[in-house]
Simulated assay, not measured.
Amino acid sequence: MSLSSQPMPVNLKLLVSVDLTTTGDDEKEPLLNGLDFLPDGRLVAVDNQNMKCIILNERLQRLGTPYKFKGSPFSVVWLSHDTLCVTFNDVVCLLSVSTDNTITLTRQIKTSSSFYSICCMSPYNMVVSTYDDPRPVRMISVDGVESDFDHFLTFPMKTYKVDESRCTYVQSKNTLVLTDRFAHTVYIYDTLKGTSRAVTNENIQEPRGACVGPGDTVLVCSKDKNSIVHLTIHGKILGTYPVDMKYPYSICMSKDGTKLVVSNNAICAKKLQLYKISQAMS
């Protein structure tokens, strides 16, 4: 590996910040539980409290009409083409999004486990974190086939409750990441070698959402430090970045690696913020 391809610290510059307040059709204060970017730069968010999926532009302004669910969504991921996957308890919904921001339900998959966060493993397979299940992380295909990671991966011997852990997956490195909120730990697994490491640090306090960062790194919301922690897939901490919000909660990076969006979960102080990511000058 050349020096230039080593993971580098980054700079985060705040571009847009919006206060998430109850709007006309909301019954409750919004909670953006899941976020993901479309390849064209539009942002998709699921609002757990108001049971809907919304599309936002690069100014974090709403586009089109939100899609209303019958239950509270937990997480969303863009799969391929115009397809989104959204988790609820024991159901995964597949939605399509048009260029004019129309959201349509295409299929619902009933699952045997309760899924919380969802991320892409390949165009056809997703990795999901679970709750009320002794297998903290599982896989599901677009066709609804559920499967488990090989037994040689040593997951925490615990059954998480809802919102106690989340996952992300670094596709190019076959690396699975699981956050353990109350153990203040980020678990990192090499799914090919079967190796794992548990990362703890004073800056990782109640880790919440996680996403793939620039150069196959990992970004994790550290709730009680009001910051984002930047890690390599080997568990080295590259940096800690304070964010201008209490209790950062969900996070995702744009497909081109230039923007980061973060939502939080602070009562009566909910925000959604868009940051520019750039490589820090050494």
Rank of each mutant, 00 (worst) to 15 (best):
Lys52Ser: 02
Tyr247Glu: 13
Val162Lys: 11
Gly209His: 05
Pro39Gln: 11
Leu14Ser: 00
Ile118Met: 10
Met126Ala: 13
Val220Arg: 03
Gln205Pro: 00
Lys193His: 05
Tyr249Leu: 12
Arg59Trp: 06
Ala280Glu: 15
Gln6Ala: 01
Gly24Pro: 03
Asn101Met: 11
Val44Ser: 08
Asp180Val: 01
Asn264Trp: 10
Thr159Asn: 01
Leu15Met: 07
Phe152Glu: 07
Val162Phe: 11
Asp133Lys: 12
Pro39Tyr: 07
Thr232Met: 02
Phe115Leu: 11
Phe182Leu: 05
Asp143Pro: 12
Pro123Lys: 00
Thr104Gln: 14
Lys70His: 01
Thr102Ile: 15
Cys85Arg: 07
Gly239Ile: 13
Gly257Thr: 15
Lys270Tyr: 08
Lys28Cys: 03
Lys158Ser: 02
Val162Ile: 13
Ile277Glu: 09
Ser172Phe: 03
Tyr189Ala: 02
Cys211Trp: 02
Asp40Leu: 14
Gly71Leu: 08
Asp132Cys: 05
Val91His: 07
Val229His: 06
Phe69Ala: 02
His184Phe: 06
Val128Cys: 15
Pro39Gly: 04
Met139Gly: 10
Cys53Asn: 08
Asn264Met: 13
Asp133Val: 05
Gly194Thr: 00
Arg197Val: 00
Val44His: 08
Met51Tyr: 10
Met126Glu: 05
Val145Arg: 06
Ile228Gly: 01
Arg107Glu: 15
Lys158Gln: 03
Thr240Leu: 07
Gln49Met: 14
Thr130Leu: 11
Thr195Leu: 01
Leu12Ser: 00
Leu3Gln: 03
Leu153Asp: 02
Gln49His: 10
Pro214Leu: 11
Tyr249Asp: 14
Val199Ala: 03
Ser2Ile: 14
Ala269Ser: 14
Asp133Thr: 09
Arg62Asn: 08
Thr168Ala: 06
Gln49Glu: 10
Thr159Val: 07
Gln171Trp: 04
Asp100Ile: 15
His184Met: 03
Ala269Glu: 15
Thr185Asn: 01
Ile54Tyr: 06
Leu14Val: 00
Pro73Ala: 10
Pro242Asp: 15
Arg59Cys: 06
Tyr116Leu: 07
